[in-house]
Design a protein around this nucleic acid. Structure first.
Length: 223
DNA sequence: CCCTGATTCGC
DNA sequence: GCGAATCAGG
């Protein structure tokens, strides 16, 4: 597997989104966790809370790496490394980031899924390739009973439907003034007399059929 | 033990 | 540039 632009983009998004290297590697497929980390570093995007980075050390004690080939020439047993313990005083005075800071990670306005459009009901359409990243849990809210808007206050809503009132839809679902007819039904039918006449058409002989009247939800919007 | 990211270094 | 090996902490 090679690092195509798509894969790099996905890696970047997920990394910045907080996904672990393992998750990213699994999502991308064909790469190991180490590959993801290595690539992330090469891309320059690191600086993420690392469990092993809680303590910051200017010195680099990480030296004993693998030396498979011929051992490095050793000048001799003369160890000349005083390793002056100059400033060992750094107990707990300076600690800019308390390791696991519980702050809710300031919302980044930079990298958010692009909003292509807003659909009915307020859901957000996203562009292809955009992926919903872990979203913080919604803060607790005080729920209040929904108050019907004045427009539909005296109209028949979905909750008002029962066996005795006409269910003929008026308007289009999703629109603020969508409601139902609400008349008393033609006994034995789900609609009132008038809408039964629209819902049930007598079968005409072949050749004498006429274009059917607009059905609910069917035709173009006419207002 | 598992997990995590960081780093090194042969390829 | 890539990533396995390794390190080091939780």
């Amino acid at each position: 597997m090679s690092w195509t632009d798509e894969r790099i983009e996905k890696l970047t998004k997920m990394w910045e989104g907080g996904a672990t290297a393992s998750q990213i590697a699994e999502e991308l497929g064909g790469v190991s966790r180490n590959a993801v980390i290595g690539k992330a570093h090469r891309l320059g995007l690191k600086a993420r809370p690392s469990p092993v980075k809680a303590n910051e050390k200017p010195a680099r004690p990480a030296a004993p790496k693998k030396a498979k080939p011929a051992a490095v020439a050793q000048p001799g047993p003369s160890e000349a490394k005083p390793e002056a313990p100059a400033a060992k005083a750094a107990p707990s005075s300076f600690s800019p980031e308390p390791a696991s800071a519980p702050k809710p990670a300031v919302e980044k306005t930079a990298e958010r899924p692009r909003i292509v459009s807003v659909g009915p009901g307020g859901f957000l359409r996203q562009g292809p390739g955009d992926q919903q990243q872990p979203i913080p849990p919604a803060p607790p809210r005080r729920l209040v009973p929904a108050k019907p808007s004045p427009e539909i206050a005296d109209k028949t809503s979905l909750l008002d439907l029962n066996d005795r009132i006409c269910r003929w839809p008026m308007g289009h679902p999703g629109e603020p003034d969508f409601h139902f007819c609400g008349e008393k039904v033609n006994p034995g039918f789900p609609y009132c007399v008038e809408h039964c006449g629209r819902a049930y058409q007598a079968q005409l002989p072949r050749g004498a059929r006429r274009p059917p009247p607009p059905l609910p939800f069917g035709g173009p919007r006419v207002r």
